[in-house]
């Protein structure tokens, strides 16, 4: 028996909007520790990892580990029927081949049940070891989304370089080139507006902008984003989900021949 009750249902709505473009079908894994997902895009160039810890739910009942295969587009269609202030409960009976999303309005005067058939998805699970990154940039998520969007109108790939000057985003295309430098800036009145750069050593990597742009669909989840870079690893773009967990995107770099 699975019954997960999330008072801030809007978080789940935003999570689906954040991942449904990158991944079509995926398994949601439920265990005592939380509700998670790991899935790659069709080209295996990018990977998304979601964690919503059990403590973040008002009620979390998961009698035994469960993996539920779903089409994320269909889940998104159902969750769009929930109000942004609704309480969302995910329910599934042991051995049943369906999952139910229940939406309760804040004053409990409207209760909706959406039931969806589960799918058999044989997805791979990659082992992602914790790593020390050569540079970690924390910046306003809207700022990062704007940079990725602007640069993709000039070129297809972006070189992200971190030096003691700051973090530089560079691209080039048929019409010309673009360079955006963001310097560390801690003297802001609100901490979420700060740009903080932790650099162990300078690093520079090249990435396809279309994946970074699909990652920025997670912007509504968090005011800030962290970008972790190391010369021999995929970049990790992380949006924390307040008090509950995170959506983490991994993107393999372009490898110079």
């Amino acid at each position: 028996m699975l019954e997960l009750r999330l008072v801030q249902g809007s978080l789940l709505k935003k999570v689906l909007e954040a991942i449904k473009e990158l991944v079509t079908d995926a398994n949601f894994d439920c265990s005592a520790t939380g509700f998670s997902l790991q899935a790659m895009d069709s080209s295996h160039v990018a990977l998304v990892a979601l964690l919503l810890r059990s403590e973040g739910f008002e009620h979390y009942r998961c009698d035994r580990n469960l993996s539920m295969g779903m089409n994320l587009g269909n889940v998104s269609k159902m969750l769009r029927c929930a109000g942004s202030d609704d309480i969302i409960t995910i329910k599934a009976d042991d051995g049943s081949d369906t999952v139910t999303f229940m939406f309760e309005s804040p004053n409990q005067d409207k209760i909706a049940d959406f039931e969806m058939k589960l799918m058999d998805i044989d997805s791979e699970h990659l082992g992602i070891p914790d790593a020390e990154y050569q540079a970690i940039v924390r910046m306003p998520s809207g700022e990062f989304a704007r940079i990725c969007k602007d640069l993709s109108s000039i070129g297809d790939t972006v070189i992200i370089s971190v030096t003691k000057e700051g973090v530089k985003f560079s691209t080039a295309g048929d019409i010309g080139t673009a360079n955006i430098v963001c310097r560390q800036n801690k003297t802001v009145d609100k901490p979420e507006e700060a740009t903080v750069i932790e650099m162990q050593e300078p690093v520079s990597l090249t990435f396809a902008l279309r994946y970074l742009n699909s990652f920025t669909k997670a912007t509504p989840l968090s005011e800030t984003v962290s970008i972790s870079l190391s010369s021999d690893l995929p970049v990790v773009v992380e949006y924390k989900i307040a008090d509950m967990g995170y959506v983490r995107y991994y993107l393999a770099p372009k490898i110079e021949e």
Partner: peptide, 14 residues
């Protein structure tokens, strides 16, 4: 040109 890496260049199936 440059080749696009994939997750398999960096992480193992577990």
């Amino acid at each position: 040109g440059s080749l696009q890496g994939t997750m398999y260049n960096f992480y193992e199936n577990c």
